[in-house]
């Protein structure tokens, strides 16, 4: 009960909601890093996944790379890059990108690969060129899986962007790092709750996004499990 009261006090303290160390500012930083990391990842992973999926080349390389990247401890990556390029925002973003690229890449690749051969045959037979097959058939059919990969990546990125605090660039991780240093449990739990909240919002956001971007014909197909 004590913890709960302290938490309520922590969240309702007006000082908490203003200034550069306040919740809004920290949240904004956190979102900014997450968004930047996700955006860069998508810009890299979606085109590469489309290309490997479309050509059927590099499927093995993609999967291996993704598995390798998945096995990397993000914090380890962060420190390694800090050693290489020094402290700042860049190592944080690189670490987040290393985290987010695999799920997006693998899903995009798989999304394109799962297009039925008969559909590709029909597309080519009607006179579509490679590019047109990709843009008019493979990409739209892969969209649900791509969004799925993006959602997984986004949730991981939001949860992991806390590492920014370790290299002194803020974000919600500050509450956790500072809380740890000061043995302030309330602060740590408060910060964690904020991160969890953001992750939930992210999930909801992607659910909305898929409603918007997935063609109705595909949505119903997915619903009937075909």
């Amino acid at each position: 009960m004590d913890v709960l009261n302290e938490l309520v006090a922590w969240f309702t303290d007006p000082g908490q909601w203003s200034g550069p160390a306040g919740i809004p500012a920290r949240t904004a930083e956190h979102l900014q890093y997450s968004l930047l990391g996700l955006l860069i990842s998508a810009l890299v992973a979606v085109p590469v996944g489309l290309l490997t999926g479309h050509t059927g080349l590099g499927g093995f390389a993609t999967a291996s790379l993704a598995n390798f990247a998945r096995a990397l401890p993000t914090i380890g990556v962060l420190f390694l890059i800090v050693l290489l390029v020094g402290i700042g925002l860049m190592p944080v973003i690189i670490a987040l990108v290393a985290l987010a690229v695999p799920p997006i890449l693998v899903n995009t690749h798989e999304g394109v690969r799962q297009v039925e051969p008969a559909l590709k045959d029909a597309a080519l037979g009607m006179g579509m060129r490679g590019r047109e097959v990709l843009m008019h058939l493979e990409l739209p059919v892969a969209v649900p899986l791509i969004i799925n990969g993006m959602r997984t990546a986004a949730v991981q990125v939001v949860a992991t962007a806390t590492i920014a605090a370790y290299v002194g660039v803020g974000g919600l991780g500050r509450y956790i790092v500072d809380g740890q240093a000061r043995q302030d449990l309330t602060m740590m739990v408060g910060g964690s709750l904020l991160v969890v909240f953001l992750a939930v919002v992210t999930t909801l956001l992607f659910a909305g996004l898929s409603r918007l971007l997935v063609a109705p014909g595909l949505r119903a197909l997915a619903a009937t499990g075909r």
Binding site: A118, L119, D121, A122, A123, L124, G125, M126, G127, M128, R129, H136, L137, P140, V141, A215, G217, L218, L221
Partner: peptide
């Protein structure tokens, strides 16, 4: 591609684009 656009092609499973 140009040749194929001038020839209609119908396959067994219809091959319609689901989207």
């Amino acid at each position: 591609a140009r040749l194929r656009r001038s020839i209609g092609y119908v396959i067994q499973q219809a091959g319609l684009f689901p989207h």
